[in-house]
Computed example of a mutant assay.
Amino acid sequence: MTRVVRTPLLSVRQVSKHFGAVEALVGVDLDVHAHEVVALIGDNGAGKSTLAKVIAGVLSPDAGIIERDGVPVTFSSPSAASAHGIATVFQDLALCENLDVTANVFLGHELRTGGGLLADGEMERTTRRILQNLTVRIPSVRTPLHNLSGGQRQAVAIARTLIGEPKVVVLDEPTAALSVAQAAEVLTHIQGLRDMGLGVVLISHNMNDVRAVADRVEVLRHGRNNGSFRADVSHETLLAAITGAA
Rank of each mutant, 00 (worst) to 15 (best):
M207Y: 07
I66V: 15
N44W: 11
Q182A: 07
A183Q: 01
P8M: 08
T126I: 12
G116S: 07
V210G: 12
L99N: 03
K17D: 11
K48S: 06
S149T: 15
E67Y: 06
L134F: 00
R112S: 14
A81C: 09
N133D: 15
K48W: 03
F90Y: 15
I130V: 09
P174I: 03
V101C: 01
I65P: 06
R224H: 10
Q91N: 11
S179T: 15
R112E: 14
L117K: 12
I86E: 07
E185C: 02
M207L: 15
S49G: 11
L59P: 02
D172V: 08
F19Y: 15
S149G: 03
V169L: 05
L107Q: 02
Q132V: 05
V32Y: 04
N225M: 09
A240K: 11
L9H: 13
A159Y: 00
L134D: 01
L202Q: 01
T74C: 12
S204D: 13
V28F: 11
A155H: 01
P72Y: 10
E124F: 06
G27R: 07
H189K: 01
V54P: 08
A183R: 00
R221M: 13
A81P: 06
G42L: 12
G244F: 05
G108T: 10
S76L: 13
V169C: 10
L59M: 09
V12W: 08
G223A: 09
G42S: 13
E110Q: 14
L238Q: 08
G150C: 08
E110N: 03
N206M: 04
I158L: 06
I242N: 09
R68G: 09
I190N: 00
V37M: 00
G115E: 14
T2L: 11
D215V: 03
V15I: 12
R6W: 08
G27A: 14
I190T: 02
C96H: 12
G223I: 09
D62V: 10
A80W: 02
H146S: 12
I86S: 03
V233T: 14
G223F: 09
A181F: 01
D43N: 09
A157G: 10
N226E: 06
R194H: 04
V141C: 01
H235Y: 10
E236W: 03
I55K: 05
G116K: 12
T237I: 14
V219F: 03
I158P: 01
L131T: 00
V141P: 01
A184Q: 14
S179Q: 10
E124V: 11
V213L: 00
V180A: 15
A119Y: 11
N44M: 13
S76F: 13
V213E: 00
G85M: 04
S234A: 13
L51I: 04
A21W: 11
E67S: 06
V22Q: 12
N147P: 04
H109W: 09
I65C: 12
V213I: 11
V186S: 01
R211L: 07
L10V: 12
R3E: 15
